[in-house]
């Protein structure tokens, strides 16, 4: 059966190139190979988010009068609705964590160095998209917390000169967060961002096939490699199975909650905090003057984006201690600000 199926496609499309690719593709093996699995895991989680997202969209109504009720209906009435929404909720959290780990491991292994500069830029943009997904999806349940957190979020860019107010107005779709904002967030979350994500992820994955996995400079003399097909793919699949098992365990223990429906006339509750992945930005904005905080974060993101072009030593396959320290400083800052935000009431 398998032979006949392969023969069917081979006769029509000539799969010899694909067969050659599968036979020749290998993945380097060294003491840091562990980090290679996070890219595949991120791709797996994105697929899971797409599937659960489509299922949720079948019931969701992007209208302030029905949004909260439609999510409540999914959670309480739709068969296994609680499971699908909880997987989507926890999947988003896992995805952000996995993409962050993938990015920092790529950074510290200097995998952004020539010829993978474009891959790095695409990767950073994909992280931005993932965060945009979480931000736009946050308002959709139309709860008190999601409403007021989004209000803070959409107003943050207005501090920026020139384009700030324009960005805020575009996101709000009016003078305040309301029906237009909900429709815009829903459109962004389900149409615009997925289209962009498919484009960027496809390019990122294609480039990773062209260049293969990068070997860290410290392991450059190691020549060991394993075949991608089937050995590495089976290892990858084992990681996905383990990841999904942990995700299901979290879903069982802590299913996604649904707060009370928002009443926009009421004052914002005290002590609202964003999700864990935005806490370092939140704390930075709270501790420093807004203009300085926004300016510094924007500059840091730009530097992060073009780091392969700044780190000339890595491009020449030389150690670049300065950029390792820079990455470590960014990581320490993000973690410490997140902890501070958690501890501060």
């Amino acid at each position: 059966m398998k032979q006949r199926l392969v023969g069917f496609f081979d006769e029509r499309m000539d799969l010899s190139a694909l067969r050659r690719w599968a036979k020749e593709k290998s993945v380097p093996q060294h003491k840091h190979s562990f980090w290679y699995y996070f890219g595949g895991l991120a791709l797996f989680l994105i697929t899971l988010q797409i599937i659960t997202g489509i299922l949720l969209a079948l019931y969701y109504s992007p209208n302030p009068a029905y949004a909260h009720e439609s999510v409540k209906y999914v959670m309480e009435t739709v068969k296994y609705g609680w499971l699908i929404r909880s997987i989507h909720f926890w999947g988003a959290n896992f995805l952000v964590a996995v993409v962050f780990i993938h990015m920092f491991s790529t950074y510290f292994m200097k995998a952004y160095r020539k010829p993978r500069e474009v891959m790095w830029i695409l990767g950073v943009l994909i992280l931005g998209l993932v965060l945009a997904f979480t931000f736009t999806g946050y308002l959709l349940p139309w709860t008190t917390l999601s409403y007021f957190a989004t209000k803070v979020g959409v107003n943050t860019p207005s501090i920026m000169p020139i384009l700030g107010r324009f960005i805020t107005r575009i996101m709000e779709g009016g003078r305040d967060v309301g029906a237009a904002t909900l429709t815009r967030m829903f459109t962004l979350h389900t149409v615009i961002l997925p289209l962009l994500a498919v484009l960027l992820i496809t390019l990122h994955v294609l480039l990773s096939q062209v260049f293969g996995s990068s070997v860290p400079l410290s392991q450059a003399n190691k020549r060991e490699a394993i075949k991608f097909f089937p050995n590495f793919l089976m290892r990858d699949a084992a990681v996905w199975a383990g990841g999904l098992a942990i995700l299901l365990a979290m879903v069982t223990m802590f299913p996604a909650g649904l707060g009370p429906k928002v009443n926009p006339v009421m004052p914002a509750p005290v002590g609202i905090k964003p999700e864990w992945y935005f806490l370092f930005v939140f704390e930075t904005l709270r501790r420093f003057p807004e203009t300085i905080a926004i300016g510094t974060i924007t500059l840091a993101v730009l530097v992060w984006l073009i780091v392969p072009f700044l780190d000339r030593r890595a491009s020449r396959n030389q150690k670049s201690t300065f950029f390792t320290l820079f990455g470590a400083a960014v990581l320490v800052y993000m973690i410490s600000m997140t902890i501070l935000a958690y501890l501060t009431t």
Binding site: A237, A241, G242, A245, L248, A249
Partner: peptide, 16 residues
């Protein structure tokens, strides 16, 4: 979810 988790973990160990 327990049967699902057990199946996934068995699959993981089988693959490894």
């Amino acid at each position: 979810t327990l049967p699902l988790i057990v199946v996934l973990l068995i699959l993981m160990f089988f693959l490894l």
